[in-house]
Amino acid sequence: MNILQINSSARSNGSESTRLADAIVAKLQAATPQASLVRRDLAVTPHPPIDEATLGALFTPADKRSAEQAARVALDDALIAELQAAHVVVIGSPMYNFGITVQLKSWFDAVARAGTTFSYTATGPVGLLSGKKVYVTLARGGFHREGGNDNQTQHVKTFLGFLGMTDVTFVYAEGLGMGPEAVATAQAKADAQIEAELA
C-alpha cells in the first residue's frame, strides 16, 4: 500500500490539521507496516501557483518547450506521479477565510490535468484516479460543519470527485479559536472519529 500525505497548512509546526493527518497515517502504518509513505509538506516546500508562464509551459507541446518550461511542467508531473501511485491519500486542510489554503489550491491546480487525471468526454468529464481511499482532516476556528458557509468541505469534495476520488472521509476539528476548553473538546472528538474510522 502506498500512502500519500499532503499537509496544506501554512504552519509547519502546531497545525491541528497536520496533527490529525499524522494520526491517520500512524493508524494506517500500524495496520499495514509494509506500507510506503510519501509526505509532502506544502509549507516547507510550497508549490508555485499558476501564472502566465506556467500556462504557457503547460500548453506548449512537450517537444517544443524551453528548458525553463520543461522544468516548470516537471514540478507538476512529480505531484501527479505521487498521486497516481497512491492507494490512500491523507490531506490535512485547515480552513482559512471560509475556504482552503492557497497551498492546497496550488496543489489542486498542479494535479488536475486533462488527459492525465481527468478526461473530457461527450457526456462530460470523467475522473481517472478512481479506486483510492481519501481522508481529509478539516481544522476550523469556528463551527461550520454542514452550515451554509462551509465552502471548504464542498470545494474539496467536488475537486476530488472530479478526479474520480469519491471514497472520501472527512474528519472535523471545529471551534479551535474559542479557547482552551473548546480546543480540548475539538481534539477529543476528532481523535475519537479517527479511532472509529480506522478501528
Results as ranks from 00 to 15, higher is better:
L160F: 14
G141S: 02
T54P: 07
T60K: 01
F159H: 12
Y96G: 12
P94A: 02
S8H: 13
F143C: 04
A74C: 06
G177R: 11
D191H: 02
L83S: 01
Y172S: 08
R19T: 11
Q193L: 02
Q5G: 03
L42T: 00
M178K: 12
M165G: 02
M165E: 04
K27L: 05
P61W: 01
G142W: 11
D167L: 11
D191K: 00
P125E: 11
R19I: 14
A192P: 00
T101Q: 00
N151M: 14
V183C: 00
S106C: 12
A43C: 10
V102H: 06
G92D: 14
L4I: 03
M178R: 10
S17A: 09
V171A: 03
W107T: 12
L79H: 15
T60H: 04
A196G: 05
R65V: 06
A35M: 05
E197I: 08
S17N: 12
E197P: 00
L163T: 03
P125F: 13
G92V: 14
A182P: 05
V183N: 08
I3G: 09
L42W: 06
W107L: 13
T45N: 13
G175S: 11
A196Q: 14
P46M: 08
A186K: 02
N151A: 15
T101Y: 04
T45C: 11
V88N: 05
D51A: 05
R145S: 09
G124L: 01
A86S: 13
Q5D: 11
A53D: 01
P49C: 02
A23Y: 07
T166P: 08
V88C: 09
K189C: 05
Q193V: 10
V38D: 15
D109L: 08
E197T: 10
P125V: 15
T117E: 06
A74T: 07
P125Q: 07
G142N: 11
S9F: 01
A86K: 03
E68P: 08
G131D: 10
L138M: 15
V73S: 11
S17D: 09
S130E: 10
E195T: 12
N151Q: 12
I50Q: 08
Y172T: 01
D77H: 06
F59Q: 02
S93I: 13
L20Y: 07
A35Q: 09
P94W: 03
T158E: 15
N151E: 14
G99A: 07
G161F: 08
S93V: 15
T185P: 06
L138G: 04
T166I: 03
A184G: 11
A190H: 00
A182R: 08
L198Q: 06
Q29A: 04
H155A: 14
R19G: 13
N149P: 02
I80H: 03
F143W: 12
F118S: 09
T153Y: 13
K133W: 13
A62G: 01
P61M: 00
L163D: 06
N2T: 12
K189M: 06
L83V: 07
E146C: 07
A139Q: 05
A192R: 00
G177K: 01
V89A: 04
F143L: 15
Q103R: 11
K133V: 12
V102D: 08
E52C: 01
M178P: 05
M178Q: 15
L28Q: 04
E68N: 10
Q103E: 11
Q5V: 02
D41A: 10
A23Q: 12
A184R: 10
P48W: 14
T54F: 08
A85K: 08
S93C: 15
A114S: 03
P125A: 14
V136I: 13
A196E: 13
L198S: 04
L83R: 06
